Simulated scan of single mutants.
Amino acid sequence: MYAEKAVVRVHGDLKVQTRFYPHPHSSSTIILVNGSLATSAAFAQALRFLCPLFNVVLFDQPYSGASRVHNRSQAMLGKEDEALILLDLIEHFRADQVMSFSWGGVSTLLALAQRPARIRRAVISSFSPVLNAPMMDYLKRGQEYMAACDRHQIATLVNETIGKHLSPLFKRCNFRHVSTLEVHEYAQMLHHIRQVLSLDTDRYMQCVGNVDVPLLFLNGELDEYTTPTDALYFADLAKRSEYVTIRNTGHFLEMEHQTAWEDVRQAVERFLLAADRVTGLRKAS
């Protein structure tokens, strides 16, 4: 797939490497927000069903992936900073839809709470407002291993917990990626974990009540860490929200097997294309 690459200045002096996949016949642009320890490469499977429908924007956070070489500063970024980065990118690319994965949901919801005028809909995948027992164990063990910069333990932890339902091929790729990150990337992830563990859930989740666009929450049936049941706690805050459980699938959803990919594709297409159908009906009337 053809992509236009660019380095975009965001949030003051920070720079992010972006990839823009143009669609010749779509006026809608979706921006994807990856999770902790991930780069934009993690959205390879999502690109397969999004690129035939929309313009798609991928980006790496300033401290990771292709963006890291463009930023000399080693300052730690909080989720609030990442929300401001996302808002800048939404304006730059004139994006009207957003899709996040895992802990990328925090910065995405914080950004949406600012009610960016361009955004019409958002998909929040593999995320919940509850730090349940398995997630707390994962975060605390991750905190210990990252503080020690134990690359093997960090990568093994990811594959044995949230990545347990990945195929052997994806587990090998995941292990290679996670175990070869820069020291600063581990430090950044450790900062995020400490931030999440120290925050009162109400403080960063009450913002959802200020989100005024429709939200689709996608969670895997087998995901012990961000369960479909826990995601439903958003229902009282997010009045315009829908919830879809992807059967026989864990945390990594469309990356885990072909049936999961098809189920995620159908759910995302139905939800995101609904905005276009509503707009078309209004124009016709």
Rank of each mutant, 00 (worst) to 15 (best):
G105T: 11
T161D: 03
R94H: 08
S128R: 07
D137I: 12
A95H: 08
R194F: 02
R141A: 10
Y145T: 04
A113W: 01
V130C: 08
G142K: 13
R94Y: 03
E91A: 09
V158E: 10
V158N: 09
I162A: 07
M136S: 07
F170V: 11
S128M: 06
D137G: 12
A148E: 07
R172K: 12
L169M: 11
E182R: 15
I119F: 04
A122R: 02
I193P: 02
S107D: 10
I124H: 03
R94E: 12
A95V: 07
R172H: 08
A117N: 12
F93R: 09
Q143L: 10
F127S: 03
A147Q: 08
I90Y: 00
V130H: 09
H152D: 15
H92Y: 12
I162F: 05
F175G: 15
I193N: 02
M99V: 12
L109A: 04
S167K: 12
Q188M: 09
G104K: 04
S179C: 03
F93V: 06
A133G: 04
R121S: 04
L169R: 15
I124Y: 05
S179P: 06
H191M: 06
V178N: 06
V106A: 13
L166D: 09
L166H: 08
E185V: 12
L139W: 14
D96C: 05
R151V: 07
S100M: 00
C173M: 13
Q114F: 00
W103D: 07
H152R: 14
M146S: 10
I124A: 00
S125A: 14
R176K: 10
D137Q: 12
H191F: 05
L190S: 01
H152W: 01
V183H: 15
Q114E: 13
C149Y: 03
H192K: 02
E160P: 06
L89A: 02
C149E: 02
V158D: 10
R120H: 04
S107L: 06
A133E: 14
R141G: 05
I119P: 04
L169E: 14
R172Q: 12
P129M: 04
M189K: 03
S128G: 04
S102L: 01
H184T: 06
A122Q: 03
H92P: 11
N159H: 05
L139P: 14
A111L: 07
V106W: 14
A147R: 11
N174K: 15
L131K: 06
A187M: 11
T156A: 11
A187Q: 13
G104R: 05
N174D: 15
C149S: 14
D150T: 00
E91Y: 06
A117S: 15
L181D: 01
T180P: 14
